[in-house]
Simulated assay, not measured.
Amino acid sequence: MRYPQGGGLTPERQAFRERIRMEAAERFAVGASNAEVAKDLRVSVRSVQRWRRAWHDAGAEGLRSAGPVSLPKLSEALFAVLEQELAKGPVAHGWPDQTWTLSRIKTLIGRRFHKSLTWPTPWRRTRVTGSCGVESQRQPSPSFGNSTVSNQFTPRKRG
């Protein structure tokens, strides 16, 4: 259920859930029981009980979605700038080698945009967009030297 910026449902899914709640409000108005509404809408009776309470207190407006849980810290425009910065390579930003790690990407975001993100955020975002040559998953083959991003768990060569 979680998505790239770590915030709950997608806007489409939120709209779908709101339509279900609005349909429940219509059924409350005609006197349908909680069990009937739950069965017809394929939701739990407990959800219907919460919705009925909200509907009783505030009407249909009480069932409307409150919007996204949180806004992304990096807008699409800032993420485009981040992609450009990542394309320059780690050496251009002062690191000794050409390997982007999540820690380095997080540090770059802090330096460039003065924003603090948890380290999984850049991983999720680059994994979803596949941007800047940042690998979305570990390399399945043992040829780790060609990878443009290291997840810092690169196995040692034996022998």
Rank of each mutant, 00 (worst) to 15 (best):
Pro96Met: 10
Glu61His: 05
Arg104Ala: 00
Gly94Glu: 03
Phe79Val: 05
His93Tyr: 02
Glu76Ser: 12
Gly133Thr: 08
Lys39Ser: 12
Met1Leu: 09
Phe144Gly: 07
Glu85Phe: 09
Arg138Thr: 08
Val69Ser: 12
Arg138His: 07
Ala38Pro: 04
Arg42Asn: 13
Glu85Lys: 08
Ala35Arg: 03
Ala80Gly: 10
Arg21Gln: 00
Asn34Tyr: 07
Asn34Gly: 09
His114Thr: 14
Glu85Gln: 08
Gln14Thr: 10
His93Phe: 03
Ala87His: 04
Pro96Gly: 08
His93Ser: 00
Gln49Phe: 00
Asn151Trp: 13
Ser131Val: 07
Val69Leu: 12
Tyr3Leu: 11
Phe79Ala: 06
Gly67Arg: 04
Gly59Tyr: 02
Phe113Tyr: 00
Arg111Cys: 09
Arg13Gly: 14
Gly110Cys: 08
Phe144Tyr: 13
Gln98Cys: 09
Gln137Phe: 14
Gln84Gly: 15
Glu23Phe: 11
Ala54Phe: 06
Pro142Glu: 06
Met22Ile: 12
Ser131His: 06
Asp57Glu: 09
Ala32Met: 12
Val134Trp: 15
Phe28Glu: 01
Met22Tyr: 12
Gly59Met: 01
Val48His: 00
His56Ser: 13
Lys73Leu: 04
Ala38Tyr: 06
Ser65His: 09
Gln5Leu: 09
Ser131Ile: 02
Leu117Pro: 14
Trp95Val: 03
Pro96Gln: 09
Ala35Gln: 08
Phe144Met: 07
Ser75Tyr: 05
Arg64Thr: 00
Leu41Trp: 09
Cys132Glu: 12
Ser136Gly: 15
Gln98Glu: 13
Pro140Asp: 06
Ala58Asn: 05
Thr154Gly: 11
Arg19His: 06
Ala87Glu: 07
Lys106Trp: 10
Phe28Asp: 03
Glu36Met: 03
Ala24His: 04
Leu108Ser: 01
Val37Phe: 04
Arg50Phe: 02
Arg111Ala: 11
Arg21Lys: 01
Leu102Met: 11
Pro11Ala: 07
Gly6Phe: 00
Trp123Gly: 08
Val37Thr: 10
Phe16Met: 06
Val134Glu: 14
Phe16Glu: 10
Arg127Ser: 14
Pro68Met: 04
Pro68Lys: 04
Ser136Leu: 14
Pro120Arg: 05
Glu61Cys: 02
Glu18Gln: 01
Pro72Thr: 05
Ala66Asp: 03
Glu12Leu: 13
Arg21Asn: 01
Pro4Thr: 11
Leu78Gln: 15
Ala38Met: 01
Gly62Gln: 03
Asp97Tyr: 08
Gln152Asn: 11
Ser65Tyr: 06
Leu78Lys: 15
Pro155His: 02
Glu26Ile: 02
Phe79Gly: 10
Pro11Gln: 05
Arg50Ser: 02
Ser103Arg: 09
Gly8Val: 13
Ala24Phe: 00
Val48Met: 02
Lys106Thr: 15
Val30Thr: 15
Glu36Asp: 12
